[in-house]
Each structure stands twice: as C-alpha cells, then as structure tokens.
Design a protein around this nucleic acid. Structure first.
Lengths: 218, 218
DNA sequence: ATTTAAATAGTACGAACGTTCGATTCTAAA
DNA sequence: TTTAGAATCGAACGTTCGTACTATTTAAAT
C-alpha cells in the first residue's frame, strides 16, 4: 500500500464529483448547477463551490472523470482479449453494455456536452475535444493493430471505421432515449457487424464466431 | 392569388419565429430565451411573449417550423426524381447539402432538442417525438418504394437502413462541429454508399452511376 | 491538549429567467 | 375621421444563477 488515507477534502471532492456526474448525465453540463449539486449533497452552495474555483473547473472535472470511467468500462477490460478483431469486438460489446446499463438510463456527458459546446469557445469546449480525441486515439490504435494482425483488409480506413461505429452509438442513444425504441440495441449490433464484414478479412471474421443466422441477417 | 395580405400580427410572428430558429439552432431550445429573442428583434420581452402564450409554445412552434424547413429542403425536392434508389440518393444529397450549408454552421434543432428533452416529460418532448417520427415515416415510405421497385433486396430492413443513415448524419454533425474535421462530409458519403451497397440489388445500384473509384473506395 | 490550517456555512450581490398586468401606441374597419 | 381591437411596451414579481466575502466549525499536526 503506497496510498495514504485520503484527507477529508479529497473525500468530499469525490462525493461532489460523483453527484455532479449524475446531474450532468441527466441535464447536461449546462444543467449542472452549483445550487442543485449542493441540494443533492445536503451542503451549502459555497461549500461545494470552494472545491472547484469556478463552475467551469467543475465542468472540466466532470468531463475528465466521465472519460476515465468510459475507458475503464469499455477500453481497458478489452485489452485482455487477443489483439485484432476479438479485441475490437470485445470493446464494442463492452461499450454496448455500458450504453445499456448507464448511458441509456442516465444520459451521456460526451453526447450532451458535444452538442452544448460545439459552437462555443473556451476551456470547457477545449477539454471536450481533448478527451474525445483521447479515447478515439486509443481505439484507433486498436483498429490499426487489427489491420497489422491481418484481421482487417489492408485498404481499410481506420478512421472511417471509427466514424461509422460512433455514428452507430449516437443513433442508438437517440432512438433508445428519445424514441424509446427497444430494437435500437439490436440494430446497433447489426450495424457493427455489417461495418466489420465490409472491411474484415475472411480470417479475421472467422475469429468472431458469427453464427450463420447473424451472417445472413447482416 | 388566394392569399390575402397577412396582418401585422402574423407578420411579426413570422419575424420572431425566424429569429427564434436562429437562436435555437445555435443555443438549443433551452438556450432560446425570451430576453435574447427580444433583444435580437429590438422588441420588448412582453411584446415577444404575447405572440406565444408561454415559452413552451414558442419552443413547440420552433420545432414545427424547423421540421417544415427540413422537409422542404431535403424531402420534397427529391420527389421529382424517379422512385427508388435515385430518389433516395437525391434525398441523401439534399440532406448533405443542407447539413453543410445550414446545420454545420448554425447547429441543428433536432439534434440539440433530442439531447435536451430525451429524458424530460412534457409537451415539448412529445412534439419532438412527433415531428421526428413524421419525417422518418415519410423517408421510410421512400425506402419501401425502393424495395418495391426492385432497387433494394427483398430481405432489406428499411428501418435498419434509416437507423444507419441517421447515425451517419449524427456523427457527421459531431465530427464537423465539435472536432472540426473537414473530412467528415466525405466520410458520410462513403458510409451512405456502403449502406446502400449492402442491401441494394445490382439493378438498383447501377442506377446510381457510381464510378469505379467510388465502388472501390467503399 | 493546543495550535494552525483546511473545510464548510452563511449572507449578499447583480444579472437573467418566465410571467403578469396595466398603460400606451398603432392598425384597420366603420 | 372616428373608434374598437390588436399589438406593443414598461415595470415589477419571485426565483435562480455564479461568485465574493467573512465567519465558524472541523480536521490534522505539533
């Protein structure tokens, strides 16, 4: 154990951040309000405020924490899978699982944050871009690894693949949350399968263990 | 001419709605504020307010008007094209043109509205769903027509196709507006082509006039 | 146990929010 | 040209926002 016990300050800071994540997920980074946060924590506004010198700093801290959790749920566990398509497929399934269990019920800070800050300048927008490019870059590496393993065709464009996968996730959120369409998750899976089959090599696709039914459906 | 001259009231109502569209596109339906609107129009808050009995009514009017413009730009002009894939392709190109000329520069009320109201009950959310299902239903008919024409395979799932096309549009907005990626438009075109080629018949695809280069790239 | 610093509370501020209401200006029909 | 009704304004209401400042309580180090 190299970690010493956290001070009272750090402890409550974590409590605040936790509650802030919940509010920001539901109401967006703009709906994340010091007053609401204080009420949820049974603290005074100034007590909450003191932990982050400004609302902007609080929003930035939320973005960072949300990105950390995303990577912990989606990316890192998939590293235990063998490189290439098996690892990519694991990432997608982890992602889908997270979307179903936390993002569809509570909302997604990346999505609401992107919409709120895409045409606003400032440090919050900058951090949104930084964190987004961060996890995208990691996933890009995983796709390139799949190419190097011979699981994806040599003429595959990794950024195009990521573009399509993220599009799938965005419309999944939209259909599941706004339209409340229960078929959205299965549609997302079909989309992913179709995208992989378009740029995967026979050897790579064979590793996915796709049943003949799925192959036909896609 | 069957139309009589519009009264002063209707005239300013249209002026207000026009300014409201601009604000709501940039700042979302939540960022659409009576005060901002009044300032943009050089009117008093109460003067603006009187035209819509409440802010909710104003937001609903904006959603309706935005939907009307979307259909006028994207859907209706495509009806001049022959049924089937040529018409679908025209819709997609009209859509892409609208995204490039108005939605990427100014934002999209459907997207920000969906994110803002997807977990809030009430008439604004209900109208968002209604209008979204409206244009989706129209497009669904056009896809089914393409199947009837033999341009899309009989086992094609129209809702799945629409799911993927809208995902393409959502990630296009995201990458173009937040990440400012100039390649996003071309990526969207490639996505659409790939989706069509996955479920199109040879006869249908031949109607699109896809060059050999594009066929290879997709 | 005492002291010092950190953590939290309390209060106040100016600004903006949606909405109401009475007064005023303007438009259009008589 | 008069007049009724529509259109617009101006001021005010009660809230909530982020933030600043000072006081008080609590935790940690001596």
């Amino acid at each position: 154990m190299t970690t010493t016990k956290p001070s009272k300050g750090t402890q409550t800071r974590e409590r605040i951040l936790d509650a802030a994540l919940a509010i920001a997920s539901r109401d967006g980074l703009e709906g994340l309000t010091i007053g609401l946060l204080a009420e949820a924590l049974a603290m005074s506004k100034s007590g909450v405020f003191a932990h982050f010198g400004s609302r902007e700093e609080l929003q930035i801290a939320v973005i960072d924490e949300y990105g950390r959790r995303f990577m912990d749920d989606v990316f890192h566990p998939a590293l235990r899978q063998p490189r290439g398509l098996p690892r990519l497929a694991a990432m997608f399934e982890n992602w889908l699982h997270r979307v179903q269990t936390v993002e569809i019920p509570n909302g997604c800070v990346f999505i609401s944050g992107a919409v709120e800050f895409d045409d606003r300048e400032g440090p919050v927008r900058d951090r949104m871009v930084l964190v987004t490019e961060g996890w995208r870059g990691e996933m890009l590496k995983a796709v390139r690894l799949a190419m190097a393993e011979g699981h994806l065709r040599a003429d595959c464009d990794p950024e195009q693949l990521l573009f399509e996968v993220y599009g799938t996730m965005l419309v999944l959120h939209h259909d599941a949350r706004l339209l409340r369409d229960p078929r959205a998750v299965e549609r997302a899976r079909a989309s992913f399968l179709r995208a992989i089959q378009a740029c995967g090599t026979p050897a790579g696709i064979a590793l996915l263990g796709v049943s003949p039914e799925q192959r036909r459906a896609a």
